[in-house]
């Protein structure tokens, strides 16, 4: 049964991808990309990767579709037809590469095998010893925030840098003051949506906090929580207009908070160094090693959640601010 669902989901993914190639209406492409994200999230649940599914559902199906649509509002909805000369070269090249890669998969270990090379090395150690060493049930969080915290630090910095990059490319310093422009929300006339959303926003924020602080016991953690927390602000901006949202969110404060998240993460590591241990060695925080791990993971996840949430807010509001200015110019 599981196998049939697995194959069904994968076939749906392939069909969605083929539809994306053929459709020239970029609005439909953005929607299909959202569907693609949702199907792959379902696939990740089937593969026991609940944390990954959680992230993909909120990022792949939610935020990336939203960003794509905001971009399309500026760049236009339809693309030109393909040029024949290009497809003539591309198709054989792609087919050849694909054939070689599929030939390469013939040596891969069979799907679901317990004795494949991936399952040896460090994975058994994480599964067997993390209960004693870290003392939290979610092994993914143990690995993310403790065993491989240095990797995660690098990733948080990449996210922060991307946020800075988007700001550098698109930030307008000449936005008119809030009071002088008319507040235009794309869904202003939908009364039911507005009221339902108003009731949902506190719940979304609360759920974000739950995911943040419950990540050690169930699926979740800073990355997912940050995205969920940010989505509440997107919802508000879409239903009540950018100006109303700009009153709620002070953009310079958000920028400071994004940097603060990285700073919390880095400081956690440096404090360990100043106490004579290695970078990100949590044992300095408490006498009891397991308790020290808990504290370290709490700080790290806080830094991650803060940076992810604020960078997502920065990205969305910078894009929407740009399209608002574009709209007024037309």
């Amino acid at each position: 049964m599981e196998l049939i669902i697995n194959m069904g989901l994968l076939s749906m993914l392939a069909m969605t991808a083929i539809a994306i190639v053929r459709i020239k209406d970029l609005f439909a492409v953005a929607m299909l990309a959202g569907i693609y994200g949702l199907i792959s999230a379902s696939f990740f649940v089937m593969m026991d990767a609940v944390d990954v599914a959680f992230t993909e559902a909120s990022v792949g199906a939610g935020i990336s579709t939203l960003l794509m649509l905001t971009t399309l509002a500026i760049t236009g909805r339809f693309e030109k037809a393909d040029k024949k000369s290009r497809t003539r070269f591309a198709l054989p090249l792609v087919l050849l590469t694909g054939a070689l890669l599929i030939y390469g998969t013939l040596d891969m270990p069979s799907f679901g095998a317990a004795d494949s090379p991936v399952q040896e090395h460090v994975a058994p150690r994480y599964l067997n010893d993390s209960a004693q060493e870290i003392g939290i049930p979610n092994v993914v969080t143990s690995v993310l925030a403790s065993y491989r915290a240095f990797d995660t630090f690098g990733e948080v910095i990449v996210i922060f840098t991307a946020g800075v990059g988007v700001l550098a490319l698109l930030m307008r310093t000449d936005l008119p003051p809030i009071s002088s422009v008319k507040n235009t929300a794309s869904m202003e006339e939908h009364m039911v949506l507005r009221i339902v959303a108003k009731m949902l926003i506190p719940l979304i924020l609360l759920f974000g906090l739950y995911v943040q602080f419950h990540g050690e016991y169930g699926p979740g953690g800073g990355f997912q929580a940050g995205v969920i927390f940010a989505s509440a602000f997107f919802l508000y901006a879409m239903l009540y207009g950018m100006n109303a949202a700009r009153k709620v969110i002070d953009s310079s404060l958000v920028q400071v908070l994004a940097a603060l998240g990285v700073l919390i993460y880095g400081t956690t590591g440096v404090v360990a160094m100043l106490s004579g241990k290695n970078f990100l060695d949590y044992s300095v925080f408490s006498e009891d090693p397991v308790h020290a791990q808990h504290l370290g993971i709490l700080f790290i996840e806080l830094g991650v959640g803060l940076t992810v949430a604020t960078v997502m807010i920065i990205i969305f509001f910078t894009f929407s601010g740009r399209s608002q200015v574009e709209g007024e110019r037309d």
Partner: peptide, 15 residues
């Protein structure tokens, strides 16, 4: 759990 950790962070970096 190791591929899960790698991909979970990769998704957010990807967006």
């Amino acid at each position: 759990p190791l591929p899960h950790v790698l991909i979970l962070t990769a998704i957010v970096v990807g967006i």
